[in-house]
Amino acid sequence: MDNSTLLYSGLGLVAATLGTAYTLLVLWSPDTIVPKPPEKTYRSPRKPSAKLPLPSVRDSPSVDLTVVIPAYNETARLPEMFSTTLAHLESTRTSQGRSYEVLVVDDGSRDGTADLALKLGAQYPQSDVRVVVLEKNVGKGGAVRHGMLHGRGRRLLMVDADGASRFEDLELLWKAMDEISPKGEAAVVVGSRAHLVKTEAVVKRSLLRNVLMYGLHTILRIVGVGHIRDTQCGFKLFSRRAAQQIFPHQHLATWIFDVELLLLAKELRMPVAEVPIEWHEVGGSKLNVFADSLQMLRDLLVLRANLLLGRWTVPRTTSPVENGSGKSK
């Protein structure tokens, strides 16, 4: 076999490999999540049987804070978390005049999570609790995205339903947001557990979860968010302008969606502050360490490849408008 034949064979192999990789990228890339009409409605403890239309994040804000709680089969963990959350929100409402809404996004639960959230909200007559039900489980990232696209707050907080983060630390995030976004500019503040790495809160976790944590940090430095020490903490505060610019362009609904949010913020040159918070592990996690680790790795590769190839882009605009499909126009 002469050199030219070898060359053509090599080029053919490279082309086939690239073609296969691109095909896999297309197949693995998730479609835009398009909400169904019933998912654009909410119920409240005041009228639990009535389904009312959700507003849009593109509307003018009408409360100071939206708290988005993604919840999937959370009847066991939600009561304590709800109690802590509403107690603090009511405290700041009376002491600081900070208005709020709590938006629970039931991610296709089968255990009555939505009905429980309505009952828990009814225990706080002055609260503004809204419950949205997704028809099927789309993943934590999809539930957070749905809530953020329909929040009314000047600032919007995502927080896990397990209550692992100390909700009172919202005030630390709030102060940091005041510093980097004094006039409501696009900005993100990330709650961080990085300072706990050598404490009992993390050391006593399972070996597999700690291996996953360190491995993930290494990969994140490669994909471009190594400047954030803890990307996965489910306690993040967004200015309204940041939510308007980030969430319409979020594609990932799986566990690694936080990384996409931070990459989008970086792409849009938004300031991002990282604030240490208190955290403790809560039983009942739905994370399957082995299977979800593989999925995280795949999704990180899909995310980075789509951004590098320009398949996923973010328009440089200060006031994106969401249409019915969840895309910007």
Rank of each mutant, 00 (worst) to 15 (best):
S127K: 03
D178H: 10
P182A: 06
L294Y: 09
H88R: 13
V14N: 04
D178V: 06
A242K: 00
Y22M: 10
V189C: 03
T254Q: 09
L300S: 00
P35K: 03
L18K: 08
V225W: 00
R93P: 04
A164E: 08
P125F: 06
E171H: 14
Y42M: 03
A114K: 03
H251L: 11
T92I: 12
V159N: 07
T231M: 01
I222A: 11
L116H: 02
T20C: 09
R58P: 06
V131R: 01
K119P: 02
W279Y: 12
V68P: 01
L287V: 15
T84R: 12
H251E: 07
S9C: 14
V203T: 12
Y8G: 10
S29C: 08
S285W: 02
H150L: 04
T32L: 15
G112W: 04
K198P: 07
D107R: 03
Y22R: 11
E171P: 04
E39S: 05
K329N: 14
A273H: 05
R98T: 15
R304V: 04
A122N: 11
P248F: 03
V34L: 09
T92D: 10
V272S: 01
P271M: 05
G215P: 00
S99C: 06
K51A: 11
M148C: 10
F290D: 11
G184Q: 04
S192I: 00
S99Y: 05
G151N: 07
A187S: 04
N288K: 09
K136E: 12
V129P: 00
R155C: 06
L208I: 15
L11G: 08
S328Q: 11
R240G: 01
A114N: 02
L303F: 01
A15P: 02
E267H: 15
F257W: 08
N73D: 10
V321C: 13
R130K: 12
S192N: 01
R154T: 11
G147L: 03
H146S: 07
A186C: 08
E322I: 15
L24C: 14
G234R: 07
D59Q: 14
L170Y: 15
R154D: 05
G234I: 07
W255E: 11
S319K: 14
K204N: 15
D64T: 07
I33Y: 14
F235S: 00
K327E: 12
S239V: 05
A71W: 06
T23E: 14
D258A: 02
D111H: 05
R154E: 08
M158T: 09
S319C: 10
G139H: 10
Y42W: 06
L78W: 04
R145K: 13
Q126C: 09
A187I: 05
V321K: 14
F235Y: 03
L18V: 13
